[in-house]
């Protein structure tokens, strides 16, 4: 990956705060960074292409849309890991999937519009992979809303919590 220059870093910071729903939304960012709107857009595209950004767009709060969610885990044999990841990721209901260092090495979140679909998706994934899927629906949530960064050296900490945390781990 190309190293990030000063403008990239300023842009990342600005883009995490979000853009307004207004005409020419990149114009204000361009002005603040002292570059053209075209450069802002081209740099966002580059940060997406090189994997620095996972996504740029509306961050939806799935809870508020009324869907159903379930954290699931599987113990996948190492030799089959990539093939099984492909099968699991092929299900549109799989919103996030993480490889974790544990005997249960694949952890994914099913996000479905209809609650009944969670169960049938699990059955289909088990049938496709031949592996057991353990279900970990949330039974209680413990959360205090206001967060501050842990330390100055990682200004993206709070953002990462909000952005990844609340969505990736429903």
């Amino acid at each position: 990956m190309d190293p990030l220059d000063r403008i990239d870093r300023q842009l990342l910071q600005r883009l995490q705060d979000g853009i307004a729903v207004e005409q020419r939304p990149f114009r204000a960012i361009a002005r603040d960074l002292g570059v053209s709107e075209e450069i802002v857009i081209a740099r966002i595209q580059r940060l997406l292409d090189n994997g620095t950004l996972t996504r740029f767009g509306p961050l939806f709060n799935a809870d508020k849309m009324g869907g159903a969610f379930c954290l699931c885990a599987m113990a996948v044999p190492a030799a089959r890991f990539e093939a099984v990841a492909g099968m699991v990721n092929g299900f549109p209901e799989v919103a996030h999937n993480y490889e974790r260092a544990h005997r249960l090495n694949m952890w994914f979140v099913l996000a479905c519009e209809e609650p009944d679909r969670i169960e049938t998706a699990v059955v289909e994934i088990e049938a496709a992979t031949g592996l057991a899927v353990l279900r970990f629906p949330k039974e209680a949530e413990f959360f205090v809303g206001l967060r501050v960064p842990t330390h100055a050296s990682s200004p993206d900490t709070a953002e990462a919590r909000q952005a990844e945390g609340r969505e990736a781990f429903i």
């Binding site: 767009g57 709060n61 974790r100 990462a160």
Partner: peptide
């Protein structure tokens, strides 16, 4: 609140926040 904000989602594995422990 259906949309939190219209923003960038950084891949923090590519930034400095490298360890994510459940």
């Amino acid at each position: 609140g259906i949309i939190r904000r219209i923003a960038a989602l950084p891949n923090h594995y590519r930034l400095s926040l490298n360890a994510n422990g459940m």
